[in-house]
């Protein structure tokens, strides 16, 4: 059988100079994005530090030494024994910072996972099914947006008591609104594309259409929101812990370290500045990573 009349003309695209695959193009764009690389490297380093904290930390973060309280860091004429000095109970500040990275990253990751799951399910359903489902989800989003996060978190933690689990759950169940809004809009944009209609016409089931046609095309937006909400959760944990309603002592949380140092702030400002600075760097890195991911995955959506 011949198809001479419809044979392909020689097409330069299909010859030796094949256009790059989407993955290849993505790799090239990532390699050229400084903010993304900086954010990625910092976040990667902090993750390694958090994972291997017991191997890296020079001291036990809980070991008190009341004889050696508030020793200054090395750069303020301290000793190399305690590179970043000791706190008001004589605990090694560097070791507490290192273990604190675990708390921040754990809370950021788990809270973003919980809220991401809730928000994605709600948002994608609203966008895909429309109609009454959309009306219900939009109502839920509006209710959620009417709740002031910090006040609700304060109230719940005051009722149930502060603990890591409570803080993670409260943040996870409060921060899903942006996921829902973004996923709903992204799904609306994609669901009427012809490839979705084609999959439906093939007889693909609704879960299949959503998971294999819609999700891959809105995943980049999801990843961006995950990073934003991770940073959001980490900051909120610090705020709650600072207010004494988050992670409880003696757990080494950065927000708690700032709170414990604030009484001595005028005399030993480094007690507040050091945990504040690492918190700042972590959140900055996550935000740069999120911004960068948005830039490289959707270059047309940059404003």
């Amino acid at each position: 059988m011949t198809h001479s009349s419809s044979a392909l003309p020689p097409d330069p695209l299909l010859q030796e100079t094949l256009a790059p695959t989407p993955a290849e193009r993505l790799r090239r764009r990532v390699a050229g994005h400084k903010g993304l690389l900086f954010g990625g490297v910092v976040l990667g380093l902090l993750t390694i530090v958090a994972l291997f904290a017991p191997l890296i930390a020079p001291h036990d973060p809980y070991a008190q030494n009341l004889m050696g309280r508030m020793q200054p860091p090395v750069f303020l004429d301290g000793t190399w024994e305690h590179i970043l000095g000791t706190d008001h109970l004589g605990r090694d500040y560097l070791s507490r910072l290192i273990y604190g990275a675990r708390i921040s990253l754990l809370i950021g990751t788990v809270a973003a996972l919980i809220s991401g799951t809730i928000g994605t399910i709600l948002g994608v359903s609203a966008g895909y099914f429309g109609g009454r489902v959309d009306a219900v989800v939009t109502f839920l989003i509006n209710v959620r947006l009417a709740l002031p996060v910090v006040l609700v978190a304060l109230a719940v933690v005051a009722l149930l008591g502060g603990s890591l689990t409570v803080v993670i759950c409260v943040l996870g169940f409060l921060l899903w609104d942006r996921f829902a809004v973004v996923m709903r809009t992204s799904t609306l944009q994609v669901r009427n594309r012809d490839y979705v209609t084609a999959a439906q016409a093939i007889g693909g089931s609704t879960p299949r259409v959503i998971l294999s046609e819609i999700m891959p095309n809105i995943l980049n937006n999801l990843i961006v929101v995950i990073t934003l909400e991770m940073a959001h959760a980490i900051l909120l944990e610090a705020v709650l812990s600072f207010l004494g309603l988050g992670v409880q002592p003696p757990t080494p949380s950065w927000g708690l370290m700032v709170a414990e140092g604030k009484n001595m702030m005028l005399f030993e400002p480094w007690l507040v500045l050091i945990p504040g600075a690492v918190l700042f760097v972590l959140v900055l890195a996550i935000n740069l990573l999120g911004d960068g991911l948005r830039d490289v995955t959707a270059p047309e959506g940059r404003n």
Binding site: D194, T197, P216, N217
Partner: peptide
């Protein structure tokens, strides 16, 4: 029905999933 009737759409830039 899907086995017997299949569509071809207008815009081949929208009818193929770019991630596949």
């Amino acid at each position: 029905l899907a086995r017997r009737i299949q569509p071809i759409f207008q815009d081949p830039y929208s009818s193929l999933n770019p991630r596949k």
